[in-house]
């Protein structure tokens, strides 16, 4: 967080894209706050709802980056399908709807240690590589149109596309086989 604050301070000194940065600041605060609540709350259903907020913020980040189609897919697939699926999972496993003290592993400092270490390593490397260098500036980019994405998927990336479709089919069958009562 400190890093981003200092980044913010430095960025304001230069000529920068103010509205987009304000939007980014708001979105990222919401996303990070919701994510933190998501992993700490003692209520399973609340946790799922916080995830919804994170996913929506990520969709907003996509729009900031000019990736409209990814944002739309994020809303449709993640919020529309995956989240509902997860809520079904919560329901089917009969989690208590109220609070649950037993939701976290007692030795949570292990996880904390690993993730902080991870954060330090990642931040260090990102800062080293890009920081506030000029070549890391995102200026004057065009939104990537859906037509371009479609062209790209069905020409350059046709093989991964087919592979993903096979994977989805396999996952579909696999999920049915694993979960059915026999």
């Amino acid at each position: 967080m400190l890093a981003s604050v200092s980044l913010f301070a430095q960025a304001t000194g230069n000529s920068w894209d103010l509205p987009a940065n304000i939007a980014f600041g708001i979105i990222s605060v919401i996303a990070i706050g919701a994510a933190l609540r998501m992993v700490t709350t003692n209520n399973v259903v609340h946790s799922a709802l916080y995830l919804l907020i994170v996913l929506a913020s990520v969709a907003a980040v996509y729009i900031l980056l000019g990736a409209e189609f990814a944002a739309a897919t994020q809303v449709l697939v993640y919020i529309g399908a995956i989240l509902v699926l997860l809520l079904f999972g919560v329901m089917l496993t009969r989690a208590r709807l109220g609070g649950d003290e037993d939701l976290n592993y007692e030795q949570r400092w292990i996880g904390l240690g690993v993730s902080v270490l991870l954060f330090v390593v990642m931040t260090y490397s990102i800062w080293e590589q890009y920081g506030t260098k000029d070549e890391a500036r995102l200026v004057g980019y065009e939104p990537q149109r859906t037509a371009e994405v479609a062209d790209s998927i069905f020409s350059t990336y046709i093989v991964p596309f087919e592979a993903v479709s096979v994977l989805l089919l396999a996952a579909l069958i696999g999920a049915v086989v694993v979960a059915r009562r026999d």
């Binding site: 292990i110 240690g113 902080v116």
Partner: peptide, 8 residues
């Protein structure tokens, strides 16, 4: 040498 994870 890796600090906090060492205990695990």
């Amino acid at each position: 040498t890796a600090g906090r994870t060492s205990t695990v």
